[in-house]
Design a protein around this nucleic acid. Sequence first.
DNA 1: CATTGTGAACGGGTTCACAGCA
DNA 2: TGCTGTGAACCCGTTCACAATG
Lengths: 206, 206
Amino acid sequence: METEKIPDIVIGRLPRYLQALQRLQQEKKLTTNSKELGERLGISAAQIRKDLSQFGEFGKQGTGYSVPFLINKLQSILNVTSVWDIVLVGMGDLGHALARYQGFANHGFRVAMVFDNDPQIIGRQVGSFTIQDTTDLVEKVSQAGIRVAMLTVPASAAQEVAEKLVKAGVKAILSYAPITLNLPVDVHVDYIDPILKLQHMTYYLD
Amino acid sequence: METEKIPDIVIGRLPRYLQALQRLQQEKKLTTNSKELGERLGISAAQIRKDLSQFGEFGKQGTGYSVPFLINKLQSILNVTSVWDIVLVGMGDLGHALARYQGFANHGFRVAMVFDNDPQIIGRQVGSFTIQDTTDLVEKVSQAGIRVAMLTVPASAAQEVAEKLVKAGVKAILSYAPITLNLPVDVHVDYIDPILKLQHMTYYLD
DNA sequence: CATTGTGAACGGGTTCACAGCA
DNA sequence: TGCTGTGAACCCGTTCACAATG
């Protein structure tokens, strides 16, 4: 095991391994192996072994991997042993859906605050949240010490809001806005855009 | 230009180029170059030139690329010169949000039908759509000749629904369900899962 | 004896650097 | 002069194949 310089692309696969393992656990399986995991995920067994071996020797020859043990290890590596509070900005339809999404629980996340800049909806309830004014965002978010954000505002507002989040101390932003954000290098940014994914696939359609 | 065997990873970047170009067009810019595009997207200029050169010689030395011309070329390459009908299955919060999302217009897509299996909501209106019964999915979708789907059903239903979509002739599925689908190789599948993206980023947080 | 962990070989994507051209 | 297109070099991730071992 050599901890130094693990490629980002490897890190990106770990959540998928964790997801598959949690499904195996639901199915009451206590052990698995690189072949089974690989088949479920469409990844080669060698790849999975090599990825995991970067972090330690988690398996047993002849047996494979203990499902609960490997889940614990991956949760530790990915820093999701406890729960990250998330600030959600932009309470359109998508923001509403994410605010109410039950899937974050048990995966290391919980929406803690929601914001919008529209006076028409500020103060309204969404599930258990009261929509707060983005004017107060920097103060409220920094005070709460929140480090993770999801951005569901229109493209025209995304850069500005992202800068507020950074000012508030946020270090990881998952943006649904169809625009590349320009932020300090120590802030981690990723994007979700269905149009990009769909256009990728239509290339292969006649 | 050599058309044979263009890596999938290159195809995956083309939608981002198109997105950036369309923003440039909104800003009334008529030409751009690999350096400007690269800076906007966080991609090296050489990468962009090499990617584009796989499909033809679209630029002019000393000038760069014509924005509208390159937009047209990319739209042709990606097969989004006309509009793909999409079938959307699963009318929870996320399904509602996607059904009402205005961002598909002008990017090559339009939601054409929506389905759910919950008797409580079948027949209801969502925007301009009437929620249809998944029992009728195969018939309706194949009759309409729809080739592209978005899946926003619970994980427990995703595989089953995906198989129905395939039976109906769908060849591209964008799934929001947190599970790897097992489908024929000629069906293109991609996933959107915020939890995977968040866990990837929290690895880098203390 | 099934399955891991891993060095070595391999393959392929990215960057380099420059000729070529508007 | 400015910027593209591209062969070559480089770099890095994946696969291979097998020794090690519970």
